[in-house]
Write a protein that binds this DNA or RNA. Structure first.
Lengths: 217, 217
DNA sequence: ATTAATTAAGTAAGTAGTCGCTCACTAAGA
DNA sequence: TCTTAGTGAGCGACTACTTACTTAATTAAT
């Protein structure tokens, strides 16, 4: 498990960007305002005021308002799909195929953590996927490729070893995503509760999914 | 099962509203544009042009742009939570407690149908719950009351009769919602596919949920 | 000295809404 | 039956900003 801090994605973006302090302020403030008010509901004038810069500065680096949005969303798009399955194994320090429920719990915790640490980006992302279907189409194509490739092979090992029901891999991934979303959505949509326990939530979710995805009797 | 037609919610709203033809056009066009471009991304000028009315007409009945949004959303808010559990029984023509998986399948199909028939409103609704947390708070309060009341009692009957795992009812409802969302989200977010088979999808979902929610061994 | 970052005034278009007016319809009164 | 007053729908010009962006000048960094 990576040692992540709150909003690690955004901080990573800033750390690698070589942006001036003012440009970083523009990005930070834009993230806050977009996640609260929406992209169209936020004006460049507002961004400038909140960042303590002139309105011209808002456009210097990012050229357009949409350029700011792109700078905020691209890291999310890169990371929102889970990392390759093999990397989970490496992080779990397992050379062998782990117990399926354990793997589930690990993966679920990882994705929950990702969402909870990057809530503002996820909010902006969620608004944008509704307004701009191309984004979700791109992700769908990526997800399909993963399912046909390494992730599908990975799941197949579990099916072959009698730990996983022999349903299409896409269907299995779908339920995984649906269950994770059912836990994280309240945190993203409402004032997040400080007492969300990733360990407990992911254990519960893994328990449910392991039962639902157990091989046929 | 009610005999519903496509976008029955919107049509029902129109049929009961006594709006003039022009006002109905304003509503229809607003629904289309809001669902595609977002509320803030749609101007009243655009609405007027698309509806073939003057801009003053847009404001005549609904007073403000937000008034149009409210007129579109209120029917969704009234109907988006499932009807009381007892009404499912009446519609299934069962006086006895039905088999749990059958009930699941019925309820899932009902909710899927609701979403698919009202896709534009659901899109508008989805955008709005991100921008305006009060909406989802209100629904959460309603859902909690249902879980404490009739729906919770209803699930308890299944727990008592050994058909349902003894988990908190909120947790069970959560998984139900998450699984339904995993099926309908692609339809709402992307160009809907004409070949979405509610019967098959709801049967699959009920199968998975019945397994995941079966009593402990 | 040169380059990059920033400013603040300005631009052209856009925005939600206002308001006086016209028209159509209906009901009441002569 | 005809006339008048009242009411509601709709129009389109107008109002008072607001918006994303531009640009020449200034400041800061190298």
């Amino acid at each position: 498990m990576q040692v992540n801090n709150l909003e690690t994605l955004f901080k990573k973006t800033l750390a690698t960007s070589k942006l001036t302090a003012k440009q970083q302020a523009v990005l930070q403030v834009s993230l806050n305002l977009f996640s609260e008010q929406g992209f169209d509901g936020t004006s460049t004038s507002e961004i400038a005021k909140a960042a303590g810069v002139s309105e011209g500065t808002v456009f210097k680096q990012f050229k357009t308002k949409a350029g700011i949005l792109e700078a905020l969303l691209n890291p999310v798009l890169d990371d929102v799909l889970p990392m390759a399955a093999g990397e989970f194994l490496t992080e779990m320090n397992q050379s062998d195929l782990p117990n399926f429920q354990q793997l589930l719990q690990y993966m679920i915790a990882d994705r929950m953590k990702f969402v909870l640490e990057n809530q503002k980006q996820i909010r902006v992302f969620a608004q944008e996927i509704i307004r701009n279907p191309k984004i979700i189409q791109t992700l769908q194509v990526r997800a399909a490729a993963m399912i046909k490739g390494e992730a599908g092979d990975f799941l197949q090992q579990y099916k072959d070893s009698g730990q996983l029901v022999d349903w299409p891999s896409g269907r299995i991934i779908q339920y995984l995503l649906g269950t994770i979303i059912s836990y994280v959505a309240p945190q993203v949509l409402l004032v997040p509760t400080k007492d969300f326990d990733i360990q407990q939530a992911s254990t519960e979710a893994a328990e449910f999914l392991a039962r639902g995805l157990a091989p046929q009797n």
